[in-house]
Computed example of a mutant assay.
Amino acid sequence: MDLVTLGHTDTTVTRLAFGGAGIGNLFTPIGDEEADAALAAAWAAGIRSFDTAPHYGLGLSERRLGRFLRKYPRDGFHLSTKVGRILEAVEGPIGSDAANGFAVPATHVRRWDFSADGVRRSLEASMTRLGVDRVDTVYLHDPDNHLHQAITEAYPALERLRGEGLVGSIGVGMNHCAPLARFVRDTDIDEVLVAGRYTLLDQSALQDLLPAATEHGVSVVAGGVFNSGLLADPRPDATFDYATAPARLVERALRMQEVCARYGVPLRAAAARFPFGHPAVAGVLIGLRGPGEVTDAVEQNRRPIPDELWQDLRAEGLLPGDVPVPPCPPPVSGPDPGSNR
């Protein structure tokens, strides 16, 4: 797939990235074989960018991803993980982590820690689970309620780790735009991962974050492009940002689906492609948990979307007229299965 360079670095990513929450048993469990099959399908399709976090299944996602990637040359893929939550082993009876969204035994508890020591400890533990000696991108993960410490302690710690060669590029991942814009302006981060705030239903990142990223040369990776489900399969019981979708948004998504159907384009294809209309967006991160989902994501990413579709969405008041849209043909090319990148 096409490669793009992140921020001011020489770090490259494929424009479609594999999100690892699903293989960490997000909401429902999957076995090791299905997780391996999903990762194998992604690799065969040309995806070379893989994202994970300690939070995902209390380290399960990192362990599964690391086990899979060990068979490939280390410079043949881009690997990102996150810091901000320390995993501490539980003593005594072990329950379930379902309250945190993951179908795994609660063998550990998460403790917020954006101190310099916490960042180093978290990264070292992640590298052990992943089986690597460096990580291409490390994100500060959800520092919403810890902004001061994240900026004054965690970010400088990542700069030092970058200087030691353990970290390639530095990012921040959140679903709130204002704090991300502050990181863009006040630090020398390379990229931001913005979840759910630049989608067909929510373009709030366009107000401040995306202009700031463009001005400062910071790359944007768009996550949550389906707003947790509504834009993938709009129906009355669909979810929006991990809660039951309001009726007005369900109606809007259904109207978008009708427009897309005129051109034989699934709504999920338009939703995954939409962020590429903005020049600051370097890639889209999609959570994948099985080979069927991977195949579908890649196929939709290749699907040509005619300019007229975007024009109809604007004409019917479903997309603001000033929002940039991607060109046709799509920005992501077909895979080169023989390439390590």
Rank of each mutant, 00 (worst) to 15 (best):
T128V: 10
L130S: 00
L130A: 01
G131C: 03
V132I: 11
V132H: 05
V132G: 10
D133K: 09
R134I: 04
V135H: 08
V135M: 09
V135L: 10
D136P: 11
V138D: 05
Y139Q: 08
Y139D: 10
Y139L: 14
L140F: 09
L140S: 02
L140C: 01
P143V: 03
D144N: 11
N145S: 15
N145M: 11
H146K: 06
H148N: 12
Q149V: 13
I151G: 05
Y155F: 14
Y155L: 07
E159K: 14
E159W: 05
R162L: 14
G163N: 11
G163T: 13
G163E: 15
E164T: 06
S169Y: 06
G171R: 02
V172A: 12
G173F: 00
G173L: 07
A178P: 04
A178N: 03
A181K: 10
A181F: 03
R182M: 13
F183G: 02
F183S: 03
F183V: 06
V184F: 05
V184Q: 07
V184M: 08
D190V: 11
G196H: 13
R197M: 00
Y198T: 04
L200T: 12
L201R: 01
L201Q: 06
Q203A: 13
A205M: 08
A205C: 11
A205P: 10
A205N: 07
P211F: 00
A213Y: 05
G217C: 11
G217S: 12
V220P: 01
V220W: 01
V221Y: 13
S228A: 13
G229W: 02
P234T: 09
P234D: 05
R235N: 10
T239Y: 12
T239M: 11
F240G: 03
F240L: 12
A243E: 15
A243T: 15
